[in-house]
C-alpha cells in the first residue's frame, strides 16, 4: 500500500472512529497468556471467562464441538481450561467473542458467512501446520481466524460501497482482494493491518493479516503467513469461502508459499495433498455446525 493510501485509510478510520475496540476479555486474556504459566494465572483465566455468562456458555458449547475435538466433554469453564489448555482456550474465547463485537458489520458481508470462512481457515491453518510438523504453532489458529478481519473493517467503513465491491467480486467470479484493489485502491489486508495495530496484536499475526495475499515475498516469508495463505485458498475452493464461485485454478506445486514450506519441512513432500483436500469437506461440516450454534440458522449460501 502506498503511503498516500495508508494516510487516506488512516484518516477515514479516525474520522468514522467506530472501529470496535479489542474486547476487554481478550486484552486481559492476552496479559495472562504473556505472563508465565501458573496456578494463579489459570484461575484468573477461568474467572475472566466466567464473568460473562453468555461468553462462558458459548465457550463451553465451542469447547465441546466437533471442531475442538469432542473427545473430552466439559461442563464447566474450569474443566474446559484444564482439558483444552490455555492456548486452545484462548482460541475458543477468540472464536466466541469476536463475532459479537462485529455483529453490526452486516452491511457488507453476512456475519455467519464471514465467520464460517474465518473459523474454517483457522482450523485448516492449524491442521496443515500440524501435518507439516511446523514447530511453535500456538498462534496459527488465531492467525487464521483473524486473517480477513480487514473485510469487517471495510464493511464498517464503507457500508454500501463495500457491498458493491462484494457484488462485483461475485459477478466477475474474482478474488475479493483483486476487486478491492481495482475499485477502492486498497484491500482488506491494508485495513486489517490498521486494526491489528490498533489492537496491538502480536507482530507475526499483524504481518500475516497484511501479507496473506502476498506470502513468500520479500515482505513476509513466515511459515504463518504461508500456511494461512494456503488454508485460505483451500477453504475458498472447498465450500468454506464467501459463498460465491471463484473461477480459478491453482496447483500447489507452483505456489511459492508451498515451495517455501517444502524446502523447510520434509513432511510437506510426503503429505497426500489430495486427501488433505477431501478431508476439508469433513471440516466444513464441523465449522458449519459451530457457526450455526453461534448465529442460529445461517443462510444457505454455500455454493460448493
Amino acid at each position: 500500500m502506498n503511503p498516500f493510501t495508508t494516510q487516506l485509510l488512516q484518516r477515514k478510520v479516525n474520522a468514522i472512529g467506530n472501529l470496535p475496540a479489542m474486547p476487554s476479555v481478550l486484552a486481559s486474556l492476552g496479559e495472562c497468556l504473556s505472563a508465565s504459566p501458573s496456578e494463579e494465572n489459570l484461575e484468573r483465566i477461568v474467572e475472566l471467562i466466567s464473568c460473562d455468562k453468555s461468553l462462558a456458555a458459548q465457550c463451553l458449547r465451542t469447547a465441546n464441538s466437533a471442531l475442538f475435538g469432542r473427545r473430552i466433554e466439559v461442563d464447566s469453564v474450569r474443566r474446559a481450561v484444564l482439558a483444552l489448555g490455555i492456548w486452545r482456550i484462548r482460541d475458543v474465547v477468540y472464536s466466541c467473542s469476536l463475532p459479537s463485537i462485529f455483529g453490526k458489520a452486516d452491511r457488507g458481508i453476512a456475519p455467519a458467512t464471514f465467520w464460517r470462512h474465518a473459523m474454517g481457515t483457522a482450523l485448516v491453518t492449524q491442521h496443515l501446520a500440524q501435518r507439516l510438523d511446523i514447530p511453535h504453532i500456538e498462534k496459527f489458529y488465531l492467525a487464521g481466524l483473524l486473517h480477513d478481519i480487514g473485510i469487517l473493517v471495510n464493511s464498517l467503513l464503507l457500508g454500501e460501497d463495500f457491498h458493491k465491491v462484494l457484488a462485483e467480486a461475485e459477478r466477475s467470479e474474482t478474488p475479493l482482494n483483486e476487486v478491492e484493489n481495482e475499485i477502492l485502491g486498497f484491500t482488506h489486508c491494508d485495513s486489517g493491518r490498521i486494526l491489528a495495530d490498533l489492537w496491538k496484536l502480536p507482530p507475526d499475526i499483524s504481518e500475516t493479516i497484511e501479507f496473506h495475499h502476498h506470502p513468500a515475498s520479500k515482505d513476509s516469508d513466515s511459515e504463518m503467513t504461508c500456511t494461512v495463505y494456503l488454508a485460505d485458498l483451500l477453504c475458498r475452493l472447498r465450500g468454506l469461502g464467501y459463498g460465491y464461485y471463484e473461477a480459478r485454478e491453482f496447483d500447489l506445486a507452483s505456489e511459492p508459499s508451498w515451495m517455501l514450506l517444502r524446502t523447510r519441512y520434509a513432511a510437506a513432500g510426503e503429505l497426500d495433498m489430495a486427501r488433505f483436500t477431501f478431508e476439508l469437506d469433513e471440516h466444513a461440516v464441523k465449522v458449519q455446525a459451530l457457526v450455526d450454534s453461534i448465529f442460529g440458522k445461517t443462510p444457505n449460501d454455500v455454493t460448493h
Binding site: G241, E246, F250, D251, L252, D272, A274, F278, H304
Partner: peptide
C-alpha cells in the same frame, strides 16, 4: 479418487469443489 502414491509427473490442480 487420487493419484497419490501412484504417479507423480502430474501436478495436483485445485478448482472450486
Amino acid at each position: 479418487e487420487t493419484l497419490f502414491g501412484i504417479y507423480d509427473q502430474f501436478r495436483l490442480a485445485h478448482f472450486p469443489g
